[in-house]
Design a protein around this nucleic acid. Structure first.
Length: 196
DNA sequence: CGAATTTGACCTGCGC
DNA sequence: GCGCAGGTCAAATTCG
């Protein structure tokens, strides 16, 4: 039985590796790729601070792809873009259906270090750091204000160590429906900047 | 009793 | 410079 993979930013894969600095074109290619792989997908855009996310819905799946390019929305009809800075962290957002603001088990160990109320949202944001001493990856968890059934998990950075847990959801006893995950990524996408 | 979480205080960046 | 909002710190508290 195939379970969807956990939202682990280290294992995100995208079939195309971009080396160009033209992020606008690259993001367009991602969208075209999605269009090819999904039959007439509908795209709906949501913004979360300085990044842009596209929810991709097709008869077969719903997934969320995010841009690490720090796009900014100026208004509802015009998208203002800025190029990703060289030292901007890699950011991925995962949208999952969940009753509680709990972090899905992504195989890494996290330490919670803060919680803040967010202006305009009745729900707080939770701040986590990777427990590994030399790893600076952060994770933010907040409820999607436009759809409170969903929780947005934002990963910032990339782990510099292997996951302490290498086994994901591979038990026959694992009951996916009990987790109530609706929008788990069945495909995930990576934007690869020029390799450091 | 050590580890993890909570929570108020503090820091920082940004807009005015 | 000031105020606000988001992000982080760290002492206190809770949990296993």
């Amino acid at each position: 039985m195939n379970y969807p993979s956990n939202p682990n930013p280290n294992f995100i894969d995208f079939p195309i590796t971009f080396t160009s600095d033209d992020y606008d074109d690259a993001f367009q290619m991602i969208m075209e790729q999605i269009s090819l792989e999904n039959h007439s997908p509908t795209l709906s855009w949501t913004s979360s601070e300085k990044l842009l996310a596209a929810e991709v819905t097709s008869p077969l799946q719903t997934s969320l792809v995010t841009s690490p390019m720090s796009l900014e929305i100026e208004d509802k009809t015009e998208i203002k873009k800025r190029k990703r800075h060289k030292d901007d962290p890699i950011i991925h957002v995962f949208k999952t259906k969940s009753i509680e603001e709990i972090a899905l088990d992504d195989g890494f160990k996290w330490r919670k270090y803060g919680k803040k109320p967010i202006r305009g949202s009745p729900f707080p944001r939770h701040y986590h750091k990777c427990s590994n001493a030399n790893c600076i990856v952060k994770k933010k968890i907040e409820r999607d204000t436009s759809n409170p059934d969903y929780v947005l998990t934002t990963y910032e950075g990339r782990h510099n160590h292997p996951s302490p847990s290498v086994v994901y959801c591979d038990s026959d006893d694992f009951d996916l429906t009990s987790l109530n995950i609706l929008s788990f990524q069945t495909r995930t996408y990576k934007y690869s900047h020029s390799a450091p």
